[in-house]
Nucleic acid binder design. Structure first.
Length: 528
RNA sequence: CGGAGCGUAGCGCAGCCUGGUAGCGCACUUGCUUCGGGAGCAAGGGGUCGGAGGUUCGAAUCCUCUCGCUCCGACCA
């Protein structure tokens, strides 16, 4: 048994002998550590000199670009136009909507000065350069966009006003994790104004559906779309909807939200229009967004113990060609073969890439495995002479501990490459879908059973302890104080209500919290 | 901001208790040999031990303060 491995000293010799994985830690050993290892070893991102902020590396950025590209098209297809609003928002704007301020006040970055001064060799903030009104760095843009809407919207003929922007926002979070929660993050935020409630609610649900289909079709990440309970609403919203995805440790990840804001912002910012009868009326507004957090969701949905597995649709490079270079004259032939193959694949609309870096081919292979490239081709002399292609599928990398590679005639590979990528996309989705469907418990009828299922919230759970899925229970949709109490009881178990699925059968039985007749089912889970 | 743990080479760690100015594995560089595959041998490069004070003849090691990271709590896309 070849135990001479870099993992010795990290993992026991027995574990090592059993399998050699591309990451220093497995999901079972410690899920949070595994997550960080993937982010690092897949070259996705790293922490920055600024606390809580991240540097998105080319491979991670490439994924974001794919996400942006596809989602942007869907947003435009549903009638929205892109635009851009400033990073800075006058502090007075934020103060306009009471709940909104309340929700964000504790995590806002504030700009108070506009100049530095050299004070005896030391750079200091120039007290003379104090801004009359402090600016806050946008945590979201409802208020500054609302201010524009107020000027842009005069008539019912201006409605609906449908806009979107791709931007960075800042929320000064206490605790950050790369992609999942960073102080600065990237997102798109859609903002719309409508003549009436029905139209605004329809928009809110339409965009939720755009997110759902996007997550499932592009990210291969199955989600459950539903409405958040009142205590989880966006500050200033009448209704908040979310899509929730199940990570491999069973926790839920809110992957996107859509809000019906009623007339709260319209009233606070005087967004009014004259209706057909000439009467001045408040608009109903919505907002909706998804962020770089999606990338964290992709990692925790599809990653395995060898690193990331990217759905082909968002992989910056879909098929990697690794020539088995040996620093010999034949190398040129290998490279030529790879380059011409790359050309053929590109002609078929595939993002192919020849990795000619002067690095050992085995090293290159494992680097691409960790990064999650969907297909990795290795071309040696035999492939060149035989006109064949030897490749690995990242989604089915191993049979036991053995790496599976397959050799097929070159023409056959090229002809089937698009289908192959589609198969990988579908396989990743199917795997994740089976996990989601198979881990929602629906037979619990009391809070005690719920508590028993999840067990006491222990430290061990946080290191990849026992897997706990989600629970679906009937409830009576209590509000106000009753809801607060329920949230507290759940909180003690580290649980939250994720959402009430939009698609569900009519509720039967009694609310497990209040004992009243159930109105609907809700999902409860531990969450990110 | 509270609780716990941790900061020693790019990554993962040992050394700290019992002070004597750094070590291991992987990665990196060079050479030779290998080669349908996460190679072997040899020779190298890289660290002011998170930072600042203090104790001491002498500090990675002891003391104080500070900064940062990870996990948990509160908060959240």
């Amino acid at each position: 048994m070849a135990l001479k491995s870099r993992w010795l000293g990290l993992i026991s010799a027995e574990v090592c002998a059993m399998s050699k994985r591309a990451l220093p830690v497995t999901r079972d050993e410690n899920f949070p550590e595994w997550y960080q290892a993937v982010v690092r070893d897949a070259d996705m991102a790293e922490t920055s000199p600024v606390r809580g902020c991240m540097i998105i590396k080319p491979w991670g950025w490439g994924v974001w670009e794919r996400i942006q590209g596809d989602l942007d098209a869907r947003i435009k297809d549903t009638g929205h136009d892109n635009c851009y609003f400033p990073l800075f928002i006058p502090m007075s704007f934020i103060a306009k909507e009471a709940e909104h301020v309340e929700g964000f006040a504790k995590e806002m970055a504030v700009v108070t000065h506009h100049r530095l001064r050299n004070d005896g060799g030391k750079l200091v903030v120039d007290p003379e350069a104090k801004l009359e009104e402090p600016l806050i760095v946008r945590p979201t843009s409802e208020t500054i966009i609302g201010d524009a809407f107020q000027r842009w919207i005069k008539s019912y003929r201006d409605l609906p006003m449908l806009i979107n922007q791709w931007a960075n926002v800042v929320r000064w979070e206490m605790r950050t994790r790369l992609f999942l929660r960073t102080a600065e993050f990237l997102w798109q935020e859609g903002h719309t104004a409508h003549a009436d409630r029905d139209d605004a609610v329809a928009e809110t649900l339409k965009m939720l559906e755009v997110y759902r289909t996007f997550a499932e079709e592009v990210l291969a990440m199955p989600v459950i779309a539903g409405e958040k309970p009142a205590n989880e609403r966006f500050p200033g919203a009448d209704n908040t909807y979310s899509i929730e995805a199940m990570m491999q440790d069973g926790k839920a990840l809110q992957a996107g939200t859509s809000h019906y804001l009623g007339t709260h912002f319209a009233e606070a910012q005087n967004i009014q229009f004259q209706n057909a009868q000439g009467a001045l009326t408040y608009c109903h507004t919505t907002s909706w967004g998804v962020s770089t957090r999606l990338i964290g969701g992709v990692i925790m949905t599809h990653g395995d113990d060898d690193g990331l597995r990217l759905p082909p649709m968002i992989a910056p490079r879909q098929i990697i060609l690794v020539p088995m270079l040996r620093e010999k004259p034949e190398d040129a032939e290998l490279i030529e073969y790879c380059v011409s193959l790359e050309k053929e694949l590109k002609a078929a609309g595939i993002r192919a890439f020849v990795d000619v870096k002067p690095v050992k081919s085995a090293e290159k292979r494992w680097n691409w495995v960790r990064r999650g490239a969907p297909v990795i081709i290795e071309i040696g002399g035999r492939d060149v002479s035989g006109g064949s292609v030897t490749f690995m599928r990242r989604d089915r990398l191993r049979d036991g501990d053995k790496v599976i590679s397959k050799t097929v005639p070159r023409a056959e590979f090229v002809a089937g490459a698009t289908v192959l990528l589609k198969e990988i996309q579908d396989a990743l989705y199917a795997e994740a879908k089976a996990r989601l469907d198979g881990n929602i418990l629906t037979n619990l009828t009391s809070f005690e059973e719920l508590a028993e299922y999840f067990g006491p919230a222990t430290e061990a759970d946080d290191e990849g302890g026992a897997f706990r899925g989600w629970v679906r229970v009937p409830w009576a949709r209590p509000e106000g104080k009753a809801l607060e109490e329920i949230a507290d009881r759940l909180k003690a178990l580290k649980l939250t209500i994720r959402n009430a699925p939009l698609v569900q059968e009519s509720a039967a039985g009694k609310c497990i919290f209040t004992g009243e007749a159930a109105k609907e089912y809700i999902l409860i889970a531990r969450a990110y």
